[in-house]
């Protein structure tokens, strides 16, 4: 695995600027223009601006940065996870279950294929060198521009034994919003998964009772998705009307 990595890294280093430019142009357009006005009224000249998101970040080993104490045990955790998932040989489980690893801002993120989520969760909890006893729940995130991976389910795990914290992220497309439930491993995720279903419409397969939790039972739609409007109403005050926050002219 390491030789493979090194070769990739050398190749990347050789044509870095070109590669970065290409990645940038392939990244989805996050927003256009600079001000809220999309038709007339924008005299700033910034109307044609196209701001692209960044390409998915992928970190290379070593994950531990000697200058950043927050990253001290990242290599150990990654090794332990790799070993526990039975990886090591090329093309076997680790590559299959963990798509990529991202180290940013002193946090370690494993991007896990959704099929492997339950297995990864079980290993994270049970493996003696990992022992992530505490799952602090799942947060849904909606990226409408991230085609094919619109819905993200983000889990944070905390190990009390090793005093370590990691993030596991998995994605599913809008058309097939299914993610396996990890309630059987972490019972605490029961309500958190119901909340993510309620707000984002992510279906957690295998959840014992996936029903709405915050919204009324007969509510339509999943209100915290980006394609669901904020739902505010215009406020009238002494003849003037203040539009709701999502319809006001504003900076982006």
């Amino acid at each position: 695995m390491s030789t493979d990595n090194e070769r990739e890294r050398d190749e990347e280093a050789a044509n870095l600027p070109e590669k970065q430019g290409r990645e940038r142009l392939n990244a989805p357009v996050r927003r256009t223009g600079m001000f809220g006005a999309t038709t007339t009224g924008d005299t700033s000249g910034y109307g044609g601006l196209r701001v692209r998101g960044s390409a998915p970040a992928r970190s290379r080993r070593p994950f531990t940065d000697p200058d950043d104490p927050r990253t001290a045990d990242f290599d150990r955790v990654a090794d332990a996870l790799e070993a526990a998932l039975g990886e090591g040989e090329e093309g076997s489980a680790p590559k299959a279950s963990v798509e990529r690893v991202e180290v940013a801002l002193g946090e370690l993120t494993f991007h896990v294929r959704r099929e492997a989520l339950l297995e990864v969760a079980r290993v994270l909890r049970d493996d003696p060198s990992l022992r992530y006893e505490l799952c602090t729940g799942v947060a849904g995130v909606h990226f409408p521009d991230d085609t094919g991976r619109e819905l993200h389910a983000v889990y944070h795990f905390r190990s009390l034994t090793h005093n370590s914290e990691i993030r596991v992220a998995t994605t599913c497309p809008d058309a097939d919003p299914h993610v396996p439930s990890i309630v059987s491993v972490y019972p605490t995720n029961d309500w958190h998964e119901r909340e993510a279903w309620d707000f984002f419409g992510i279906v957690f397969d295998g959840h014992p009772a996936l029903t709405r939790i915050q919204m009324p039972d007969d509510w339509h739609g999943h209100p915290q998705r980006k394609d669901y409007p904020l739902g505010g109403i215009p406020v009238e005050y002494r003849g003037a009307t203040v539009p709701p926050p999502d319809e006001r002219r504003s900076y982006k």
Partner: peptide, 13 residues
Amino acid sequence: SSGGMFNNYAIIQ
């Protein structure tokens, strides 16, 4: 009284 700062889908205005 008026929904206040929570002018959104969840709160009665």
